[in-house]
Design a protein around this nucleic acid. Structure first.
Length: 564
RNA sequence: CGGAGCGUGGCGCAGCUUGGUAGCGCACUUGACUGGGGGUCAAGAGGUCGCCGGUUCAAAUCCGGCCGCUCCGACCA
């Protein structure tokens, strides 16, 4: 250990917030170079290699072949798929010596699709499943949380190609199972949730979420069934509205511009009102209508309109569109510009704006008074809402996305003109899937999920070492016992870290706890006088003494007990 | 990109208001004592106080600009 590259710190650097970040820094496993850019010192690298190996084994078991694609890519490839702009600012751009623009790849759908069209011609070549462990580069607007969101990281990314949807499902389910296996073997509990596919595109996706308060995603979970989804796409039951039946009538509502104020002023529940929210969706002012007690989900709105992006309209843009903030009415608006949530469509008459200052309307009824070209779920699920699958109540937790599996459909193959000749002689477009795991992020999650107040408690499978030998005392008896045990342990295939520093016992014990190797063997002159050494599992409080001659067998037993 | 905070030896911090010798704890080096849960004593090494410019006899300190890092949000795997 005296020769180990890296050093422990007694105090965590002030920049670190979460337990995993503090422990990784204090234990000397990682060192920051820039925002979202880290070095991984030898023990951390060992752990990363072990995690990679677990992933590799599970991917191969799922029928995938390991390969390797380039990190440096011509920008034109990204223009072909249409993502040069949509992925935009996240792409690291650089110029080669001929002034050609290259990008550092943030993901590899484009390159694997390019490979497909160069390599695959016939349905006889399908299905295919390939994966790689590769460094990705993403110029994140805001790196955060230590290893949670970084700009350079290793991703295991896998891609599948199938002749049709049915065949695709087999690959998808195999990957899904592999992912569950991987996270379990790494000692991190995950929940699979429905998710939005984001910039990757495609039709359906599931995220593997490690639930933790330091997470950056909001996860909606049902207490009554196993429904789980990212808040960005979670569904929920609208419940009964509080609509009325009757003629459209005006009511004066001076200075009342919020739903809360309106409901209070009129003495009605928020469910009896309709709310308008204005967005610029792909450059078009858009009028979104939803029941007053609900919130519009921008991502759902984007998806409903098959659009690329949306942002709230600025006040002057609202006026320019001819709408009156606080008193907006869907009546009279070109339906093409209107998106309605089911909560207002089925509700009967609601209180809505009159598109005039200080006036609202009673009994505004969808179908009779106004219509929308698009009716779609654009609501944000909130804790306390009712599950759409059962009658359970929804709750919300924070989580970290460790893996994400996507059904891409023909999102890439189509624009990039990747195809194969099917058995009936027809040229068809392959159904693709992609599957990612952030390796360092997974390591951070392992630490977050496996630590105590003293330090890391590595799960055996990904620990940087199996055994941490702590010699106490400088006598020859200690030295010879240490070297005897070290070589005997090594001979059984265990990796051993010996703390050969001239430090006091307390320092060595504290560093051992911090570093978190699963089994500690203390060899001191005091114990040796009775012919004993001490074994202690990191996760346990108590230690046990065993005869020197039994140390190796006892160590093997202790470690084996961790695997059960 | 909007909001907030922070940059002073490797780490944690004080000093800045009121300009004048850069300081404390830990870590590090050497020696002695000590030796089973972060020891004691002694002697040391290590800092252009983020960078550039300005004010001043004099700037870590005051002023301006820039850069970096962190957090909240936006956005994002």
């Amino acid at each position: 250990m005296s020769g180990l590259f890296g050093r422990t710190l007694r105090e965590a650097p002030a920049d670190a917030d979460s337990a995993n970040h503090q422990l990784l820094l204090r234990s000397g496993l990682i060192v920051q170079l820039a925002a979202g850019v880290y070095s991984f010192l030898p023990p951390a690298w060992t752990t990363l290699l072990k995690i990679e190996q677990i992933i590799r084994e599970e991917m191969v078991a799922a029928g995938s072949q390991e390969m390797r694609m380039p990190a440096i890519q011509p920008r034109e490839l990204w223009e072909e798929s249409g993502r040069a702009d949509s992925y935009g600012p996240v792409l690291f751009n650089l110029k080669d010596r001929r002034e050609r623009t290259m990008v550092l790849a943030p993901t590899h759908e484009e390159s694997v699709t390019d490979l497909f069209r160069k390599v695959v011609q016939s349905y006889r070549d399908l299905p295919q499943s390939v994966f790689q462990m590769q460094t990705k580069f993403r110029d994140e607007p805001r790196p955060r949380g230590g290893l949670v969101r970084v700009r350079e990281f290793i991703m295991k990314d896998a891609y599948t190609f199938d002749v049709n949807d049915d065949a695709f499902q087999l690959n998808y389910l195999a990957m899904r199972q592999a992912y569950h296996n991987i996270f379990e073997r790494c000692g991190v509990p995950v929940v699979a949730v429905q998710a939005d596919s984001g910039a990757i595109g495609g039709k359906q996706s599931e995220e593997f979420i490690f639930l933790t308060e330091i997470g950056e995603d909001n996860i909606i979970l049902c207490s009554g069934c196993n429904y789980a989804a990212n808040q960005e796409r979670a569904e929920f039951a609208r419940g009964a509205g509080a609509g009325s039946v009757g003629e459209l009538t005006e009511v004066e509502t001076p200075g009342i511009t919020t739903i809360e104020g309106l409901a209070g002023f009129l003495g009605i529940p928020a469910q009896a009102t309709a709310k308008a929210a204005f967005f610029l969706v792909d450059g078009e002012p858009t009028f979104a209508v939803i029941r007053g007690d609900l919130e519009v989900n921008e991502l759902k709105l984007i998806n409903a309109l098959d659009a690329l992006d949306a942002r709230p309209l600025l006040p002057e843009e609202v006026a320019e569109a001819g709408w009156v903030a606080g008193y907006a009415s869907p009546i009279g608006v070109d339906p093409v510009r209107v998106v309605a949530d089911p909560s207002v469509v089925d509700a009967g008459g609601l209180v809505a704006g009159a598109n005039r200052e200080n006036i609202h309307l009673h009994n505004v009824t969808y179908g009779r008074d106004w219509t929308a070209a698009t009716v779609a779920d654009i609501g944000t699920a909130q804790p306390g809402d009712t599950c759409a699958q059962c009658d359970g109540s929804l709750e919300m937790k924070r989580g970290i996305e460790l893996g994400h599996i996507f059904k891409l459909g023909t999102r890439y193959a189509e624009p990039m003109e990747a195809s194969f000749l099917d058995s009936d002689g027809e040229r068809r477009t392959p159904i693709m899937g992609c599957y990612g795991i952030g390796v360092e992020r997974l390591m951070a999650a392992v630490v977050q999920a496996n630590h105590d107040e003293l330090g890391i408690v590595w799960p055996r499978a990904v620990a940087p070492f199996d055994v941490h030998v702590v010699p106490l005392g400088s006598g020859d008896d200690v030295a010879s016992a240490v070297s005897q045990i070290e070589s005997a342990l090594s001979a059984t295939g265990l990796s051993v870290l010996v703390d050969d520093r001239d430090e006091r016992a307390g320092v060595k014990f504290n560093d051992a706890d911090l570093l978190g190797v699963p089994l500690r063997i203390t060899i001191g002159s005091r114990g040796l006088k009775q012919g004993q050494v001490e074994l202690k599992l990191r996760r346990d409080v108590d230690s046990s003494s065993v005869p020197l001659g039994d140390a190796v067998a006892s160590a093997q037993n202790a470690l084996a007990s961790l695997d059960r």
